[in-house]
């Protein structure tokens, strides 16, 4: 029982990151119909930006010169916050310069997101040498910083990461439900053309959606960096799990995407822990298998009432 409980606790950190990426992917897909395959790379870049802020003028961290503008290293929480702001600005800029000109056409839009995927990867390789970096966690990480529950250890770091991600997603949901901006966002996800007719500035709202999604992904990247270290491929697995989690809600339900993130992390941890021939790498394959099963049984998402027999959908 203790071991089971420990594995449940261990799945919280990954689950938070999967959930954040899944919610970000769902937000973008709801508002624009675009599947942003570069979401993971954007989060990875955000983690590197946090490293830049946190490293300051540390001579052991050899970045390109113009990427170390601050002589004094920032606290990690401030570095992550700074990276989130930069990510939000970059997300809005990318929507304006790259995605908007595609006008929602699916083939070029997905091509553009893959172009961003490669571009961010090569940018990181150029400026950070493709090497692994250490950022650390904004939460206490000493060996005594933990609770013991039923014999299992629940680290402060895991609690902090989970609570911050849940709080961020909760605030986002609250804003969507209670503010005019949120109402406008929900309106354009329901009917874009009618929203424009009633005076909603659709392009601004969509740009804001991209900014918030990028910020959420950036927050996930900055916080999970304390667990994974920062490296160019740190988000590949997270992206696949995030995509899989987002499909649980038919790519349109942030709540189900959130639940899916924790569900997939739980399943991953349990499979790696209890099934002998599945190591931590192969769990990715099982995530793909679960994805295929979910899409086969409930094509429009777990809670959708659509039968999903729409072979004519485009």
């Amino acid at each position: 029982m203790t071991l089971f409980l420990q594995r449940v606790f261990d799945s919280f950190a990954n689950g938070s990151a999967y959930a954040a990426l899944a919610v970000a992917i769902s937000m973008v897909f709801r508002s624009t119909g675009v599947l942003n395959l570069a979401q993971g790379q954007m989060a990875m870049l955000s983690a590197y930006i946090a490293v830049v802020f946190a490293a300051g003028a540390d001579p052991t961290v050899a970045f390109s010169g113009w990427l170390t503008p601050f002589a004094t290293p920032w606290p990690i929480w401030a570095a992550v916050a700074g990276a989130v702001v930069v990510s939000a600005a970059a997300g809005a800029l990318l929507e304006y310069t790259v995605i908007r000109p595609m006008r929602g056409d699916p083939v070029p839009t997905i091509g553009a997101t893959l172009g961003l995927y490669l571009l961010i990867g090569v940018f990181v390789a150029k400026h950070f040498g493709g090497r692994q970096r250490f950022l650390g966690s904004p939460f206490p990480q000493e060996h005594t910083d933990r609770f013991i529950i039923g014999g299992a250890r629940l680290w402060f770091d895991t609690i902090g990461l989970t609570l911050v991600m849940l709080a961020a997603i909760g605030v986002l949901a609250l804003v969507q439900r209670t503010t005019k901006v949120g109402l406008a966002f929900r309106a354009i996800t329901s009917n874009r053309d009618s929203s424009a007719l009633v005076g909603i500035r659709v392009e601004w709202v969509v740009m804001g959606g991209w900014a918030v999604a990028a910020a959420l992904g950036g927050l996930a990247g900055g916080l999970i960096a304390g667990e994974l270290n920062v490296r160019p491929d740190m988000m590949e697995r997270l992206l696949i799990f995030g995509l899989a989690a987002a499909t649980l809600g038919g790519l349109r339900s942030p709540a189900l995407a959130l639940a899916g993130g924790y569900l997939f992390a739980f399943a991953e941890t349990m499979m790696a822990g209890y099934i002998g021939f599945i190591d931590s790498q192969v769990t990715l394959v099982w995530a793909l298998g679960m994805l295929i099963v979910v899409l086969s049984l409930r094509p429009s998402g777990l809670l959708s009432r659509k039968a999903g027999r729409g072979a004519l959908q485009t």
Binding site: L243, T247, L291, L295
Partner: peptide, 20 residues
């Protein structure tokens, strides 16, 4: 599973397969 859904799903599944 993917062809019963919008086109983005086939891209999603194939990218997952490419990574896996």
């Amino acid at each position: 599973p993917a062809l019963r859904l919008p086109k983005a799903y086939l891209a999603l599944l194939t990218l997952s397969a490419a990574v896996a």
